[in-house]
C-alpha cells in the first residue's frame, strides 16, 4: 500500500525525520508510537503533503508511485486520509456541506459520478449510526464549538464517508474518554478490510486494546528504532520509553 524509503524531512532547516523506512501492506494495521517530539506528527503531515516540510532525501511510494510531487488534495484523491490531531474549526461551513464537497471532489478527480443528494444523505446516516452520532451534527458548523471527543468522532466520520485506502490516525485517542474511545475504535474496526490499511499514531497503548495492530513501531529522534508485534506496545506501556532512549544513547 505504502512504502516509505529512507525518508528525511526538515522544517526551517531543522532535520526532524532522519531516515524512516516503513512498508504497510493492504489489510494491515501499523501502530507508530514514541515519546513527544520524536517526529510522529511530522511523519503524518509529510505523508499527507503539508508544504511546510522540506523532503531532503528518500521517497514515499503509494501503490507503487511516488507521491512527493503531489498536492495534498491529489493525495486525498488517491485514497490517502489523515485524521488530524487538532481538527480546524471552520465556522460557516456545515459538516454536511464540507463532506459533500470533499467526497464529490474526490469522485470528480477519479472520473466517477458525484453522489446525488439522497444517496449522500443515506450514506451519511449509515455512517453516523455506526459512530453513534446525533443527527443534528450534520448542520453544525465544522468543528466549531465541538468538544475534543466530537472533533475526533467527526474525523472518523469523514474517514468513513471518504473510504480511503490508507488512513493515518494521528493521536485520535488523545482527549477521548473511554466511551468515546470505544466508539471511535469500533468505527475503525468496522471499516477494516483486506483492501485498506491503517497507520495509527499514538502516545499510549490504550487505543491498541481496541484497534489491534499487526505491527508496532517505535519512532525516536526521527527514526524507527524498534519494531515488533502488539506485545511491543504492552511492553512500552509497562516500561515507558526510557529504556529505548538508553538503548539509543
Amino acid at each position: 500500500m505504502i512504502e516509505i524509503v529512507n525518508l528525511h524531512a526538515s522544517v526551517d532547516g531543522q532535520p526532524i525525520l532522519k531516515g524512516i523506512n516503513l512498508r504497510i501492506g493492504a489489510g494491515e494495521v501499523h501502530a507508530i508510537m514514541g515519546p513527544n517530539g520524536s517526529g510522529k506528527s511530522t511523519l503524518s503531515n509529510v505523508i499527507a503533503g503539508r508544504e511546510d516540510y522540506e523532503i531532503t532525501e528518500g521517497d514515499i511510494l503509494f501503490q507503487g508511485e511516488s507521491i512527493l510531487e503531489l498536492a495534498p488534495e491529489e493525495r486525498a484523491h488517491l485514497g490517502l486520509f489523515l485524521s488530524f490531531q487538532y481538527p480546524v474549526e471552520i465556522p460557516g461551513v456545515t459538516v454536511s456541506n464540507f463532506i459533500k464537497t470533499a467526497l464529490n471532489e474526490s469522485k470528480k478527480a477519479r472520473g466517477e459520478e458525484p453522489l446525488d443528494a439522497s444517496s449522500m444523505l443515506k450514506k451519511m446516516r449509515e455512517k453516523m449510526d455506526l459512530l453513534e452520532m446525533d443527527k443534528g451534527f450534520l448542520s453544525r458548523s465544522l468543528n466549531e464549538g465541538f468538544s475534543g471527543g466530537e472533533k475526533k468522532r467527526n474525523e472518523i466520520f469523514q474517514m468513513a464517508m471518504l473510504e480511503p485506502k490508507l488512513a493515518i490516525l494521528d493521536e485520535t485517542d488523545s482527549g477521548l474518554d473511554i466511551d468515546a474511545l470505544r466508539i471511535v475504535a469500533n468505527g475503525v474496526n468496522a471499516l477494516r478490510s483486506s483492501e485498506n490499511a491503517f497507520m495509527v499514531i499514538t502516545h499510549y497503548q490504550r487505543l491498541l486494546d481496541y484497534i489491534i495492530p499487526d505491527h508496532v513501531h517505535v519512532l525516536f529522534q526521527g527514526k524507527i528504532v524498534k519494531s515488533g508485534d502488539k506485545n511491543l506496545a504492552l511492553e512500552l506501556e509497562e516500561r515507558g520509553y526510557d529504556w529505548i532512549k538508553k538503548e539509543q544513547a
Binding site: 495534498p72 493525495r75 486525498a76 461551513v93 464540507f98 464537497t101 470533499a102 478527480a109 471518504l162
Partner: peptide
C-alpha cells in the same frame, strides 16, 4: 485550515473560497 480542507480532497482554490465564505 487550508491544509485541513485540502487533505480532504478539496482543491486549493476551492478550499480558499470555502474559507473566505466562512
Amino acid at each position: 485550515a487550508l491544509f485541513y480542507l485540502r487533505a480532504r480532497g478539496i482543491q486549493r482554490k476551492e478550499a480558499q473560497a470555502l474559507l473566505m465564505l466562512a
